[in-house]
């Protein structure tokens, strides 16, 4: 086998039957051919890639990431706008609520003021009426007292007369007045 290998490297590398002698990898006769075509292929791949494919794919990738970035920025902007709108809406709602509360308070105060005025008026009226009534009652009481005194005097006079006594008017009046006070 060893001699065969040396033969192969030195010679045609292939035996009469078309089988490899030794390792075809080590056949020096074929190496220039492989190296030449390798270099040709590598140069061809390099030119195709560096001139056409890589710039194109790089541009597509850059464009895509640009588009994505723009879209994200646009989405962010829209989100901010939505947040702004929401804030404005909330503010409007708060304002409206405050306004409503103010209106309610105003109305309450107005009603209260009116009520106070009316109450005072009513109080005054009631007080006036009460004074009037008291005066009337006092008058009536006075009147009644007088009447009672008069009746008592007359009755006393009559009683004294009936009992046969005689009494002057002055004494009886003084007596009645003293009794009425007690």
């Amino acid at each position: 086998m060893a001699t065969e290998t040396t033969d192969a490297v030195a010679g045609a590398c292939v035996d009469a039957g078309g089988s490899a002698l030794g390792m075809p990898q080590l056949c020096a006769d074929w190496m220039p051919n492989q190296i030449f075509w390798l270099v040709v292929t590598l140069i061809a791949i390099f030119f195709v890639m560096s001139r056409i494919a890589l710039p194109r794919i790089g541009a597509v990738l850059a464009e895509r990431s640009g588009t994505i970035t723009n879209d994200i920025a646009a989405a962010e902007e829209l989100k901010n706008k939505a947040a702004e709108a929401e804030a404005a809406y909330d503010q409007a709602l708060l304002d409206a609520r405050a306004e409503a509360q103010k209106i309610v308070a105003d109305a309450k105060a107005e009603i209260q003021a009116e009520l106070d005025v009316e109450l005072q008026k009513a109080d005054a009226e009631i007080a006036a009426k009460a004074t009037e009534s008291e005066a009337a009652i006092a008058e009536i009481r006075e009147g009644a007292k007088k009447s009672v005194t008069a009746v008592a005097k007359d009755t006393a006079k009559e009683l004294v007369a009936a009992m046969g006594g005689s009494a002057d008017a002055k004494t009886i009046t003084a007596e009645i007045n003293a009794r009425m006070k007690g």
Partner: peptide, 30 residues
């Protein structure tokens, strides 16, 4: 010879064609 088109040439050429197909034709649409 060093310049003879051989099966090495053929399969290296096919590699080149496959690379061109994927990277040039594939990215044609951009």
């Amino acid at each position: 010879h060093w310049y003879t088109p051989t099966n090495v040439t053929l399969w290296m050429g096919l590699s080149l064609l496959a690379i061109v197909a994927i990277f040039v034709l594939g990215s044609r649409g951009r």
